[in-house]
Design a protein around this nucleic acid. Structure first.
Length: 507
RNA sequence: GCCCCCAUAGCUUAAUGGACAAAGUAAUGGCCUUCUAAGCCAUUGAUGCAGGUUCGACUCCUGCUGGGGGUACCA
């Protein structure tokens, strides 16, 4: 795809004087894969775009571009076609596709990586549920999403740090303490509270809360590991306070005249930075709000060039907190990109009924309970397959009962088939190094189609690093595997023809 | 009231403004003496409603209907 974009770029350069049509410079060359295979492997609408600028016949423009490309007699293409209303379609040649296998075999795990963002540092923070109870299935949607998004950014050359922010400071820890002590101010309920009551010694609610939070966060760490999430750092709100950064940041805002006193509280003029209302930083009881700590935390994230970019993944219930924090980051003159991604909720269905959950009432399904029943690969796959902008319905009975009809097994089955072939070929001694001569034997439609699916991978990685549409990956996995199963049905890999067997094993 | 997200096949979901809307599941029929039939092939089936922008709209804009979330000196 990259090559085609480049080729088109060269061929339209002097199509018209740039002075007359400055829009040419900003014209994005779109090369995509048409859904219909009759339209080739790649297609571009560039002629249509140019025609609307020049008010000329798009077919004529497309033909000019096509001629300029064809003159070069590129071996990449079998043919280039102009079709009405003005698309240019590209058909890859067999030779090119066969050669791509060599490239993939050479790149191995590096295949699909890009070095566009070399040495740039990004922090991606996700889940960050309060340490007042075990991780619930409701908190966890951001987990697989953040984990995979981080992996994708890594493949694009970013230096990625995945972070969990532990809110072990503030009112909720005190309430946790009361709950463990089971006094009149107790709010949290559940089995875990009963266990903590036995495990934690002490009478001071704040101290008890702190100890309880420590135990809870340890459990959360284990749960995220079970889910296959690999965090690079666990950052504690309490240590942000210990460094004095919160006071420093409040001081800075005060000096910049961005705070004021009202009703005994200290307010932040966030409306100056596009917020709909001002926010409280210090409450009238002299304690700090969550926002105060969070702004300081973001100062910490960006200070001394720690990160070039920060991404936060939050649940949609934090929608109201976005403008306050964004205003805070702006007020501190932080110029680096700072993104907040919101994910919608997951609704769990049991026997066709919505499960209503409440942490305070002790009525919820924990992620550990879910992991006890369902394989983490399946949970991750189901969470990732759907765009985070939509509400996800997770049918528990379906996930449990229909495990054999599960799309995850469809993918894993391909892996099992591949493993079986590799096992057998060892005993048959059919394994060897591939050359382009061998690979030229791959001519079946199912073989060429599988290669076409394989070379989509770099494009998938690149696109996803730009638009964060992580659901593209599980969907790609399904399409790739579908091409594999078809190939497996059509072509016998371990044939008597040793050269052909080698080529197919390579594929 | 105002703000954000969503509405696609019976169900769960795909589709950077492109050419015939794609999968799984459910339903029906076919394919195993050959590398795992947890597979392959075929058939049936969809863009909530009303307008607008565009050569072209599931996609963008306006209104409506329905669902979820937000609108605290809680986190």
């Amino acid at each position: 795809r990259k090559k085609i974009v480049k080729l088109i770029g060269n061929s339209i350069k002097n199509l018209q004087g740039e002075k007359i049509f400055p829009e040419f410079k900003s014209l994005e060359i779109q090369v995509e894969r048409p859904e219909n295979k009759n339209y080739g492997d790649y297609t571009t609408n560039i002629a249509l775009k140019i025609s609307s600028l020049l008010k000329k016949n798009p077919i004529k423009i497309a033909s000019i571009i096509e001629k300029r490309l064809s003159i070069k007699k590129l071996r990449i293409f079998e043919k280039i076609e102009v079709v009405r209303p003005g698309f240019i379609n590209f058909f890859l040649s067999k030779e090119y596709l066969q050669g791509e296998i060599l490239r993939i075999l050479e790149d191995k795990k590096e295949f699909g990586n890009s070095k566009i963002k070399k040495n740039k540092k990004v922090q991606i923070e996700f889940i960050s549920a309060n340490p007042t109870g075990p991780l619930t299935v409701g908190n966890a949607r951001g987990g697989p999403f953040g984990d995979v998004l981080g992996n994708i950014l890594k493949r694009n050359g970013w230096n990625v740090k995945k972070a969990y922010y532990v809110n072990d400071y503030g009112n909720q820890i005190l309430i946790l303490g009361h709950s463990i002590l089971k006094d009149s101010q107790a709010q949290y309920k559940g089995e875990y509270i009963d266990k903590l009551s036995k495990a934690v010694i002490g009478k001071n609610p704040k101290q008890v809360g702190k100890k309880g939070a420590k135990i809870i966060i340890k459990g959360i760490q284990e749960t995220t590991q079970r889910l296959g999430i690999k965090y690079d750092e666990w950052l504690f709100e309490s240590s942000i306070y210990k460094t004095g950064l919160v006071e420093d940041v409040l001081e800075v805002l005060k000096k910049r005249k961005l705070t004021y006193e009202k009703d005994g509280a200290t307010w932040f003029k966030s409306t100056k930075y596009g917020d709909i209302r001002d926010r409280v930083l210090i409450k009238s009881d002299n304690s700090k709000t969550y926002l105060a700590g969070d702004i300081a935390f973001h100062q910490y994230k960006f200070k001394e060039g720690k990160f070039d970019k920060v991404i936060n993944i939050w649940g949609a219930d934090h929608y109201g907190d976005v403008p306050g924090l964004k205003a805070g980051v702006k007020a501190l003159s932080i110029q680096k990109p700072f993104e907040i991604i919101l994910h919608q909720f997951v609704t769990f269905l049991e026997k066709g009924e919505k499960m209503k959950m409440s942490k305070r009432k002790g009525k919820y399904l924990t992620m550990d309970e879910l992991l006890d029943q369902i394989n983490p690969d399946i949970i991750r796959f189901f969470f990732l397959k759907t765009s985070i902008n939509t509400h996800l319905n997770f049918d528990l009975d379906l996930a449990k009962e229909q495990s054999e009809k599960n799309p995850v097994f469809y993918i894993q089955y391909a892996y099992a088939r591949i493993c079986a072939m590799l096992r057998k070929c060892k005993t048959q001694n059919a394994k060897g190094k591939n050359t382009i001569q061998n690979l030229k034997l791959l001519e079946d439609a199912s073989e060429l189609n599988l290669i076409k699916e394989l070379i989509r991978f770099p494009e998938i990685i690149e696109n996803t690093a730009i638009d964060y549409q992580v659901q593209r990956l599980p969907n790609y996995a399904l399409e790739l595997v579908s091409a594999f199963h078809k190939f497996y049905e059509e072509c016998r890999v371990l044939t008597d023809d040793k050269k052909l067997a080698q080529a197919r094993l390579g594929l």
